[in-house]
Amino acid sequence: MIQRDIAYRVRAIESLSPTLKRIVLESATGDPLPVGAAGAHIALTLKCGDRILRNSYSLIAPSDGTGRYELIVRRTDPSRGGSHFVHDELTVGAVLAGYVPHNLFPSFSHARKHLLIGGGVGITPLLAHLAALRREGARVELHQLAAAEEVALFTQLLAPWAGDDVQVHGGREGLDLEALLSRQPLGTHVYVCGPAALMDRVEGMAVALGWPDGRIHRESFGASGGEPFTVRLARSGGEVRVGPDESMLQALENAGVAAPSLCRGGACGECLTRVLEGEPEHRDHYLTAEEKASGQFVMPCVSRAHSDMLVLDL
């Protein structure tokens, strides 16, 4: 009933430009792949030398019975290592561990019109949205901002949907954002994906023009992991290292610590634990604002630490 992990096999790799590669994944086990809707991303575990990275990538096409997920990965400098691994070491046939698709950037069926705005490689989830929305016959308009030398590449990626409603703009000043947002009909939803500065600008402009919050959507992979830190157990002694991709609760359980839990989503209060030292980073919905500010409690199922060390009453 609960499916989280999937083994993916690299089916194809295509070089789109010196810095962009299109990766096609299929199931490594032969089991059908779960539905990957427009806006969804998958997390992949990448072994870069002696380091293990978990990177998230948006699907560039809806996957519903196609048996494959398609991604575009940009080689970035500086890189945490993930994009260099994908560009320099990943080969066809390689098997990668990953998660089922997770969608934090869905489209909304209530929308009268969908306005998609992309910046650079932020085009990836918008390609999937464009394909899905056009297939449904929804009203949609896309604007892609690109560096001058990449205009041709993005124009080519968008070629299947070419028309007046799909435009690629070269350079940062290529698009009059205020005019674009101002002329949208009531009931339009805007979706933006790209550099944080672009997403902030679109969001800020839309809010200033009076768009309701619920019609402004920006791409997000969520915040499941974070910086690693160490938990010291005051009562039982010992220390537990919490890695970047596991929760504090998982790390405690893996270390054999009997920690109570129920919902594992920061809502039920079962895992409430007293903090003796260190600064918790609260991500739960259980503690009140005052309790969070006091720093005396933490919910290990979702929360982490701002400090390198957290001393718990366990």
Partner: peptide, 8 residues
């Protein structure tokens, strides 16, 4: 109570 749990 918020008696939700994963449906394992």
């Amino acid at each position: 109570a918020v008696n939700l749990e994963p449906h394992f």
